[in-house]
Simulated assay, not measured.
Amino acid sequence: RMINSSNGNQLVAIELCYENINGSCIKTSYSLGPRVFLYLVFGFGIVLAVFGNLLVMISILHFKQLHSPANFLIASLSCADFLVGVTVMPFSMVRLVESCWYFGESYCKFHSSFDGSFCYSSIFHLCFISIDRYIAVTDPLVYPTKFTLSVSGICILLSWFLATTYSFSLFYTGANDDGLEELVSALTCVGGCQIAMNQNWVLVDFLLFFIPTLVMVILYCKIFLVAKQQARKIESMSNQTESSSESYKARVSKRERKAAKTLGIAVIAFVISWFPYFIETLVDAYLGFITPTYIYEIFIWLTYYNSAMNPLIYAFFYPWFRRAIKFIITGKVFRGHSSTIDLFSEKKLLD
């Protein structure tokens, strides 16, 4: 479409998302080189999020040795990250690179609801995991009787129910943009998918992120203090004759501390990924939505990439996960009795 420029002397070509539809959004896509580069970068993140988390879920659900309350929480967390890679990231990638929403108005709301659901589900899962690790490290021998399969199941159900109920209710009742009718009307066009959040709900969003995150940080600080004390105690006992029960307690404590350290790194990665986004949305809502779109997109994709990070963290710190991946990738997971393999053994399992 051709329109007059501001001085009225020349015509400027304007590209629209839908050329033959009145009220179409203006398209401002990238040239071929940057488009290919962005598709590769974002596509790589999607592949990592989808297949990395799929490997985590298959590993924990297939190998009986990994069937524990804590690991089921990790598998459920991976499911949330997997669903981000399937239902959110690909559509956000096309919207960013093409600067248009080609997936219909109804899926726009679904997309935003999925985004919120899986985000808060991850937060709640990580919060419950930090509670699990705190009990495991501070009282490792009593821990199996406190954090049972049924307790883990309740934590998983609560994480999913609270997150999905909140997100879908918020977007499908329209409460998110109450008082922003003029802004929404100005932004609305065919081929757009902009979700506005008023100050009240932005604040609620931030608190739903900040409070569980604060709980996680406090618990992990306590965990590492206890772990340090335990390590000193075990070291002081190393030159003395240990009873078998003391030796067993030391081994259990060491294992639980290592698991807490790994999951602590996952929590740190989560906070680094999500904190800038929540701060930006909070500040933006109170300053009249002045943040440039590209800044917002950088922050949102930083959060999406977090969904791909946990499998990389597990692969780096958990030898059992690396062994499980080898079994799955080589197809040996389909062999009879493969589910009973000892993944914690130092022997070569693929021989």
Rank of each mutant, 00 (worst) to 15 (best):
Y102R: 12
C119F: 15
N53H: 05
I272K: 02
L225I: 09
E19L: 09
C193K: 06
T303Q: 11
G104F: 10
C119I: 14
F275L: 15
N20L: 11
D342W: 03
L149C: 06
I26S: 06
L180E: 03
T188I: 03
K261F: 12
R322N: 09
S76W: 01
Y107D: 06
A266P: 02
M57C: 09
F210I: 08
F317P: 03
L61N: 13
N20G: 02
K233I: 00
Y277D: 00
E182F: 01
I154Q: 04
T28C: 06
F42K: 08
Q10M: 03
F327L: 15
A136N: 01
F161V: 10
S169F: 13
L207D: 02
W274N: 09
S150M: 09
A250G: 04
N200K: 11
G174R: 06
P311N: 02
Y30A: 09
Y172S: 05
V86L: 10
P276T: 06
Y143S: 15
F114D: 05
C25A: 10
I129L: 14
I129Y: 00
P140A: 07
Y143C: 13
F82H: 10
Y39N: 04
E235A: 15
S238E: 12
A70E: 12
V41E: 03
F103N: 03
L203M: 08
S244G: 00
F147P: 01
S253N: 10
F147G: 00
F110K: 05
L77H: 10
C108Q: 04
Y277R: 13
C127S: 13
E280I: 05
G336A: 11
K249S: 15
P319L: 02
D178T: 13
L214S: 14
T28A: 06
L66E: 14
I298Y: 12
Y318P: 00
P212Q: 03
L32G: 02
M89Y: 11
P276H: 01
C17L: 02
A231G: 00
K222N: 13
L157E: 08
S68P: 00
N310S: 08
L287K: 12
L96A: 09
K326V: 08
H62I: 08
K222H: 11
G331D: 02
A80C: 14
V12A: 07
P319I: 05
L32S: 11
V142T: 14
L55M: 07
W201T: 04
F161N: 08
P140S: 05
Q65K: 10
G264H: 08
W101D: 04
D139S: 15
A285D: 06
S338H: 07
R322P: 03
R257M: 15
A308M: 01
F114N: 11
F224I: 03
V283C: 06
W320G: 00
S24G: 07
I341T: 14
L149Y: 15
S29D: 15
F270Y: 14
Y107E: 02
S6R: 12
A136F: 05
F128H: 03
E242V: 04
G336M: 07
L11C: 10
R335L: 14
F72Y: 15
S245L: 06
L162E: 04
